[in-house]
Amino acid sequence: MDKDDDTSIFVSPFEQEAVVTPSIVKSSQFVAPGDDILSQESVVRGHGTMVQGTRLTSTVAGIVERVNKLVAVLPIRARYSAEVGDVIVGRIRDIVSRRWKVDVNSRQDAVLLLSAVNLPGGVQRRRTYEDELKMREFFDQDDLISAEVQELKQDGLIMLHTRSLKYGKLENGIFISVTPQLVKRSKKHFHRLSCGVHIILGDNGYVWIYVDDAAYGEDEEEANFSKRRENDKSNLEQRLSLIRVRNSICILDLYFLSIQPETIMLIYEETIRRNIPVQHMLRPDIINDIYRTVKNTKEM
């Protein structure tokens, strides 16, 4: 255990760790802004590159990606840049005329039009003025929602839609924000972990951790609130595992490890195996320990 420099607030846990041999990296080219990108004569320049005179240079720090003639540089850390079809988790920032402004950890707020949501009851019709007045009943300020990127406008404006039963308001769960580059785009973003906890891995680096409502029974309303409270008590175990998942994701983010169901469970199971209580999971010495064990697992 590292006891020497744990105290400094300016030391991120990542720095305390010895260098991982960048064996995978050696094959590809790393560039910083302004560095030349080695290339043949005719290339199509993609994101993260620019032409300065006769040179093709990088504008971000990252690894050069080549697809046929297209050359692009993917930044290692950056804000989320949206693509059509991405599943995202976002927070309603503001309500303006017939649209919601949604914070999605991007360059600017995304827009969710009133016409891009499913009305309750699943009716398809023109949105009336009454619907506009009821917008706060669907999604109010500071509500969390899951949605999909429908369209990207010319100036980079992100249009969202929630026109599927999968998407909508998020309640009774935990929200955590991670580096977007750690979440891989994949077919599936709604996962059920083997510990029974559900997660939504938003492409924008926002993650929602929850227990499926079906477990509570769907028809329970505020009327039998007390009953629900009781129910909640018996679900203490469940809640603890919710938090354990949250802390596992936190550890993955701190060490810049890829965030996928498999890696989350790797950390999760490691902490259970060591009997680490949930509240101690994020102690610097403990995360360091867990990280080392997980790192060494690969050599098995």
Partner: peptide
């Protein structure tokens, strides 16, 4: 500056790819 940017970045990439390959194997 350039070498410390490079060192930091390669570290991050190595870290991310390292565990990702494990995840896909598991």
């Amino acid at each position: 500056m350039h070498s410390s940017i490079e060192r930091y970045s390669l570290n991050l990439i190595a870290s991310r790819d390292h565990i990702a390959t494990f995840g896909s194997r598991a």
